[in-house]
Simulated assay, not measured.
Amino acid sequence: MTRKIIHIDMDAFYASVEQRDDPALRGRPVAVGGRGARGVVAAASYEARRFGVRSAMPSSGALRRCPDLLFVRPRFEVYAEVSRQIRAIFHDYTDLVEPLSLDEAYLDVSEDRAGLGSAQAIAEAIRARIREVTGLTASAGVSYNKFIAKLASDQNKPDGLCVIPPHKGAAFVASLPVSRFHGVGPVTAARMERLGIRTGADLRDRDLLFLQARFGAHAGYLHRAARGEDERPVRAHRVSKSIGAERTFDTNIADAAELIDRLAGIADAAWVRVERHQARGRTVTLKLRHPDFTTITRARSFADPVRDRDTFLAAGRLLLDRELPVPNGIRLLGLTLSGLVVPGAEAQPALPL
């Protein structure tokens, strides 16, 4: 049976919640995050995105792009509560809900529990319910697999709906730039550009042996994706292995005070992702890379989950203190939370700043 998959993605979720709750912010460029020298943008409104402001961007860089940017401190407890309201709506239509973060999820609606007649009708009903209950907008992609549904949800943002039926899937994928593909980051996209691969059609025209020689274990995924193929089921319960952030410095840093300051910014960036995934974990791991590329990790585990950013940072600070001084400096610093205990968060790699 052909699956019927919906990918729901809230529109500029954190920033939209803030604009909903504070009318003075509506229609203005808003960034959720800290404004300080080591602050990080957790989310940006669409008004801010027009200036090139993006999540995970240092706040100082965001202000250079948009001097009128308004910063709002994140209220994760509010976002989590709104997310719970949204997920309750999902479960009115299916039990097969795979959350990816607070603001997006896959739904398998192959079984039409509500009797609405089509996956498109279900997606429209869910979007209407979300608007009615939360006052927020969501975009949706509807298709026969997860890969295309996620691409489709981004097609008509914000507040949009895109339906890609099976007979149009391969052509839809062929028309898109490969940089839109999940799993194709800037480095891989640039490498493909050098190989003359710019669109899904270009990728489809390369055979598997060509891709294996250049992309190794990633080749099979790319080969299938270019043909609109994805057999992954919607999994209702997923547990993350770790969530973190790391930064490679332009020059090696030996000064203890500066390293401690940089660690705080990295902890902020990591905790944004921890909160986005509603995750809590028992192990904090510090990662240090020396100028000779020797990499060490130091970890501390707790009996109870780490529940706030300050405790997370304090654990990282203690681990860092034990490694000081570092006369030759450090070229990379990272901080990760692992041993996660909350289902529903998708495994994520460390987030470069």
Rank of each mutant, 00 (worst) to 15 (best):
V72C: 14
R238F: 10
R262T: 11
H7L: 00
V272A: 10
I126T: 04
L259W: 01
A24Q: 11
D255F: 00
G169Y: 10
P233Y: 02
M57F: 09
R64E: 01
D321L: 10
V239W: 14
I197N: 06
L151G: 05
I148E: 01
L313M: 09
T248W: 02
R191M: 08
G135Y: 14
G183F: 03
H277L: 14
T297V: 12
G216A: 05
I197H: 07
D292G: 08
R198C: 06
A80I: 09
E77L: 08
E258W: 09
D9G: 00
R282M: 09
A48Y: 08
R262W: 05
F90P: 00
V341S: 12
A303W: 12
L69G: 08
A201Y: 02
H91C: 13
V41F: 12
E132K: 00
R300M: 15
Q212T: 04
V239P: 03
S118E: 04
V341F: 04
I89K: 08
A279H: 12
L332V: 11
Q278F: 11
P349D: 15
T285C: 09
E18Y: 06
A48I: 08
L151N: 01
A119C: 07
R26F: 10
L70C: 12
R289S: 12
D154C: 06
R20T: 09
A345K: 12
A213P: 05
I243N: 10
G52Q: 10
R28M: 11
A303Q: 15
G34F: 15
A314Q: 05
K287N: 13
E124P: 00
L203A: 11
T188I: 04
A314F: 05
